[in-house]
């Protein structure tokens, strides 16, 4: 899962056309795909590193809100599904870090940048999972929004990123379905369960729409990303696609979406939705969301507490290598 809502990277914005830009444009036009050892403009590389790293960080931080319910899942079947899902998020983070590393950066550096706050992750994970229904809402809405964002990335111009996304999307489709199934079961259960489901949808609907990022006329990186074939559709196009897909599903669930302005526009053949209050999004990006501090503290703590283990494994590997050498 992942969103487009990251803060912009100054360096990527101030991108100056490099001398090799023309050759690169020709490569993009001829081949459509860029591979790790190709010459590429510094700004393209930088922009990709930023996006892939933030995407990877989002997967990893995204383990926490749902991991929060593993110990309390209300049935053993749900517990197993949730463990498998959170495990997938770790796997997706790993695929993505690996894709970023093909651009000449080290995972350790990216992780350091996450820990020091220099790189961001999707703001959606700074919202708390207060009830079991939130696990359903995350699967249905957050993963649904993520998939809408990610499917076009399978055709992204950078080969390793596109290949990682193919794998992620294949695995992610179960995530959205299990979320829908959780909510469907709740909304057809007791009145308390249905209320729990509705409450979760009420809280997660608007943040899910914000996952697509700022409106097109306020999205500084989008044009360049589209020219480079990293991005295929604009934020608003993807957001509209998500809304059109989700409204009928909400009807099947018997749950309402918390937007009084939501209505079908026959002429446009799209759903219209109310104005999104982006001030909240920008507050959350700035670090003032409900869970920013907790998420980062959790991640940093796990990393720090694992240091002795990582060092031990290195030391053992070095000893083994020496032993093999002395035998040979």
């Amino acid at each position: 899962m992942y969103g487009n809502d990251f803060g912009s990277d100054q360096a990527a914005d101030q991108h100056v056309p490099a001398p090799d830009e023309q050759a690169f444009a020709a490569l993009l036009a001829d081949e459509g795909r860029v591979e790790p050892r190709d010459d590429m403009p510094g700004a393209y590389r930088k922009s990709l590193v930023r996006q892939i790293a933030q995407h990877a960080h989002s997967e990893i931080i995204g383990m926490q809100p749902e991991g929060n319910w593993i110990s309390r899942a209300p049935s053993l079947r749900r517990k197993a599904i949730l463990m498998a899902k959170v495990q997938d998020e770790a796997g997706h983070g790993l695929y993505l870090y690996a894709a970023a590393e093909t651009l000449g950066v080290d995972r350790a550096d990216l992780v350091d940048q996450l820990h020091s706050g220099r790189q961001k992750y999707s703001s959606i994970f700074n919202y708390p999972t207060l009830t079991w229904a939130d696990v359903g809402a995350i699967g249905w809405l957050v993963d649904g929004a993520a998939i809408t964002n990610q499917v076009p990335l399978c055709r992204c111009s950078y080969g390793p990123y596109a290949r990682a996304m193919v794998r992620v999307c294949k695995e992610e489709s179960f995530h959205q379905r299990q979320g829908f199934e959780i909510l469907h079961t709740l909304s057809h259960g007791t009145s308390e369960q249905k209320a729990m489901a509705q409450d979760a949808v009420n809280r997660y609907w608007w943040p899910s729409l914000m996952m697509f990022g700022p409106p097109d006329d306020d999205s500084p990186n989008s044009a360049q990303s589209m020219a480079w074939g990293i991005k295929r559709f604009s934020n608003d196009e993807l957001r509209q696609r998500f809304v059109d897909m989700t409204v009928p599903q909400s009807e099947a669930l018997g749950l309402t979406l918390p937007d009084p302005d939501l209505r079908w526009n026959e002429e446009r053949a799209h759903y219209e939705y109310g104005a999104i209050d982006f001030t909240e999004l920008f507050e959350v990006i700035k670090g003032n969301g409900p869970c920013n501090a907790e998420r980062m503290a959790h991640k940093r703590r796990a990393h720090a507490e694992g240091a002795w283990v990582r060092e031990a494994a290195d030391a053992y590997a070095a000893k083994q290598a020496r032993r093999t050498e002395s035998v040979a």
Partner: peptide, 22 residues
């Protein structure tokens, strides 16, 4: 075991411990 998922010493180990828990 489930507690470890997101708390393991390295990401690869998060995946491994989740497998064992599953």
């Amino acid at each position: 075991m489930g507690w470890w998922i997101s708390r393991a010493p390295e990401l690869e180990e998060d995946v491994a411990m989740a497998n064992i828990g599953l």
